[in-house]
Design a protein around this nucleic acid. Structure first.
Lengths: 332, 332
DNA sequence: CTGAAAGCGCTTACAG
DNA sequence: CTGAAAGCGCTTACAG
């Protein structure tokens, strides 16, 4: 029922070859006049290209597969928005697939689904990939690129924030404002390289001031709101508080800290300063608004697509910066 | 380079026809033994189906195109998560395309991109579609279904909350707690049928109590945080406040109201009660937490995919309910 | 600048 | 239960 190039060929008197050349804009292979006629008839007939046929013969497409780790984060949107923006500029279509951390089978399934079509490339958002699946990816000859995650294995191309620097910046910011007993809450320290790097950054900054970090200052978690609540409960179990400031592993953690502090009658920033990591729009929505190390997620997504398509195998960082809001007090 | 069914045919000694039948599981067309051999070799060779070829010949696929209105909302995620969940149960892959409200050209572009492949169906999230594009959709013979939006034109299949009821419920809830001067803030009343319906629901509930609604109680907007701020500024320009309670057109509006009230020294809920519409996770994150008419976005997404695939052309509603939190005071 | 023809990898009546 | 063959809609060397 659908209109094909054969119909256009028939209607114009040209061969399908010529019609195809015009429609794919193979410069130099047709006259202006031919092109004009073909386009006119194509429009009249309501022609739509059959992508399946095109992908079959060219073995390539403009489809980008984006595999997203569906573990609760609130910044994946921004990254996807950035990817989407770049994709629309470049004429790419996006397929989205979801997977879960540490679930090798679901990960593999998502990758295979992506590879079943001739995708132009695969972007993996915050996907902490299993080693076997790295092999699958590498053997596919399809370009891939990790976004918002970094790996010890430097052969994996990725773009993320410099998480060591993120941890360092947050800590330094608080040190500069007179804080010495600084907590760190809600980071995943078991499974997450990101968490490790931020912790290292924190330790570096503390070491520069020759501060001995007490174990009770650090409460690991999983970057969730819940982790923030738990950490605050733990801190508040001592009176007075063991810390004067705390760095939250994510905005959600920061909000958990805030809500629990509120519940316990601890005032922020008067009794406890909070610096959040991420800096999503949530920081402006809560009270007090959260001073944060803000990551540039949108840009991360925007840039990643270009890198992927240029077969750039470098590992690279997007910048992050302190955005001052109302959750930090200066200690005199 | 990729393994094809021809390779499997060669390796097993069967024809490509038989291999194809096994791989597509055409029951009754092959013996158990044949199936076993084929599957074994397919696995050994690392065979991946070429979807482009399959889509070309069958003229169908398991791809669902989801077209999302990228206007700032914070609930599209939940809907997509629901769709995604159902899609993974049903074996569908999702393509995501973005468009904008009232931009007929971008809308059309997204629809055409979807129709360039033999998609199983098209889901349109909060897309207020232009009439010409409705024609395009209808003439495509591809099933489509609108999600989280309803239309005056009852011929458009859709699933959403019952927005008249949403407006009514929110108002009734406040009336039951003794409020009479009730504001309505941040709804889009010019372009949005949803906004109109909620306003009608509000008016119905007020009329039941024979309350004459004052114009100054209603501040239209565009469902954004900014709209909430503006509305609160307008209310606070009178002293005392003209209202004792306000219904926010969305969670973002509610948060805008909250933040601006805080800034102006108006306490919630003591001086002003707030009921939010949407009930996303944000309601728990802010202080005071927001009592809301909570929509079931996840379920909306989950259900929509089934409806789409069953060619259900009914217009239907998902339920919404009041979730009580801390932003409403009872008036004695 | 244009056309005839082969072929991409698969599915499916048709025949046995 | 299986195979030979046609065909899905397009692109692209090859030849002119």
């Amino acid at each position: 029922m659908d209109v094909t190039i054969k119909d256009i060929a028939l209607a114009t008197g040209f061969s399908t070859a010529t019609v195809s050349r015009v429609l794919t804009n193979k410069e130099g292979y047709f006259s202006k006049n031919t092109a004009h006629k073909v386009h006119k008839v194509a429009k009249e007939l309501g022609y739509k290209k059959n992508m399946a046929a095109m992908e079959l013969v060219t073995r390539r497409s403009d489809v980008i597969a984006v595999i997203i780790n569906s573990t609760k984060t609130n910044f994946a949107d921004s990254i996807v928005a950035g990817i989407q923006k770049r994709a629309s500029e470049l004429g790419n279509t996006i397929i989205i697939l979801y997977t879960r951390d540490r679930d090798e089978v679901v990960q593999r399934q998502a990758i295979i689904t992506a590879l079943e079509r001739p995708v132009a490339g695969i972007l993996l958002l915050s996907v902490d990939i299993a080693p076997q699946n790295v092999e699958l990816l590498k053997s596919s000859n399809t370009p891939f690129y990790f976004v918002s995650i970094a790996f010890r294995d430097a052969s994996l191309p990725c773009i993320s924030s410099d998480d060591h620097s993120v941890g360092y910046m947050a800590t330094k910011y608080l040190l500069d404002r007179g804080h010495r007993r600084i907590g760190l809450a809600g980071l995943d320290l078991n499974n997450s390289y990101t968490g490790q790097l931020r912790l290292d950054g924190y330790r570096s900054a503390m070491a520069e001031k020759e501060i001995v970090v007490s174990d009770e200052w650090i409460h690991a978690g999983d970057f969730s709101h819940e982790s923030g609540i738990e950490a605050m409960q733990a801190y508040a179990s001592q009176s007075p508080l063991p810390i004067t400031a705390v760095i939250a592993g994510s905005d959600l953690v920061a909000i958990g800290l805030l809500n629990q502090a509120q519940k316990l009658g601890i005032t922020v920033p008067e009794q406890l300063s909070v610096v959040s990591i991420d800096g999503t729009v949530l920081c402006d929505y809560v009270h007090p608004s959260l001073t944060s190390v803000t990551q540039d997620f949108y840009h991360m997504g925007y840039v990643s697509l270009g890198r992927l398509l240029e077969h750039d195998h470098e590992m690279s960082f997007t910048s992050s910066r302190i955005v001052e809001r109302d959750s930090v007090a200066e200690l005199r």
